[in-house]
Every structure is written in structure tokens, then in C-alpha cells.
Amino acid sequence: MSFLYLVISSLLLGILAGKYTTLDFGNLYEFMLYLLIFIIGIDIGKSKGLREELKKLGKLSLLLPASTVVGSLAGGFLASLLLKVPLKWGLAISAGFGWYSLTGPLLATYSPMYGVIGFLANLTREILTIIFYPLAIKKVPKEKAIVMGGATTMDTTLPLMAKFGGTEITLLAFVHGFVLTAIAPFLIPLILQLL
């Protein structure tokens, strides 16, 4: 949670610097983005044993992320219609699956405005999951409620899932988040380039 405060502070500090100063950081923004994507790539590449864990979990480990992808894009589609946001941006925002630190900067390379909406919408998804997952599992099967967290179920919301859903769904939540984490960096640029 403390890292979340740092993230929000960085954003606010940046907005203040952009609004009230004439500081010019040149291409540092793009450089940091590519560096972050590269590090994320290394992290995915060096992960071990995922195939074995997937076998243990069975088809649910693929069906749940697939539901999250389809459901998030459908939700993004409806939100675009409601807010009159161009479909391309609406789908790209929703394809972040809660991964605000990727979605915001990625969209901001094309449009600073949609970058901020992408960042905040996905941050809000994480916050809403933290608030509502414990309530949702009173009505919804706890393994299906994992989809609320999107990609965050492999890190930030994982302790919450483990605490309220039980240790038996922890691995499923991790794999769900992992699969979405692998999909999002490809899906967002794909949507932006195709639509």
C-alpha cells in the first residue's frame, strides 16, 4: 500500500511540475517507458515452472483470464459508448486489466489526456477490487471473483485474495494475474494500431 502512495505522489508532483514550471525533460519519458517494458520482459522471460503449475490448475487457469479479457473489453466498449470516448481509446484503457503503471504511460505516448484516464481508470480498478472483493465473495464463488482484480491478482491484490479467499485460490489468482500481465503489453498497442 505504501508504494501506492509513492505512485500517487509521483503523479501529482509531475502534474504540478508540468503545470507550473517550464522544465523540459526531452526524451526521458520515452526512454523510461522502454526501459520499464524491457525490465517487464526480463521478468516474464526468467519466470520458471509456470507450465507445470498451469497443468495442476487445469482449464480454470485459462478460462478465468479469458473471461477477464472478454468481460473487460465488453465493459470498456459500454463505457466508451456511455462517455462518448472513441472506441479505440476505450478498449485500450480497459485492456490494461488494472495494470495502471503500464496502461497510463503507454497511452500517454499517443495522448497525454487518455494516458491519465488510462492510469486513473486502472488504478481505480485496483482500489475497487481491494474494497469490494471481500464483499463480492459473499455472493459470488471466490475463485470466479478473482477476475475483478485483473492483472493485479499476481501482486498487489494477491494478499487480499489469499486472506479473504483462502490459500487454495492463491495460486489460481497468481496465474490469472500472470497470464493477463503477459497479454496486456501486447494487447494495448495492438488495439491502438489496429483501430
Binding site: S67, L83, S94, L128, A145, V147
Partner: peptide, 22 residues
């Protein structure tokens, strides 16, 4: 408002598909 609507719709959409299809 835009952020809240996007976040809520993506969460509800995911839950809906998971409940219906899995």
C-alpha cells in the same frame, strides 16, 4: 467520473462473463 465508470464497467464485465461462461 470517466475513470470510475471505466473501472466499474471492466470489473462488472469480467464478473459477468466469469459467472456466465466458466
Amino acid at each position: 467520473v470517466s475513470s470510475l465508470i471505466f473501472a466499474s464497467f471492466t470489473i462488472l464485465g469480467s464478473l459477468f462473463v466469469a459467472l456466465l461462461g466458466v
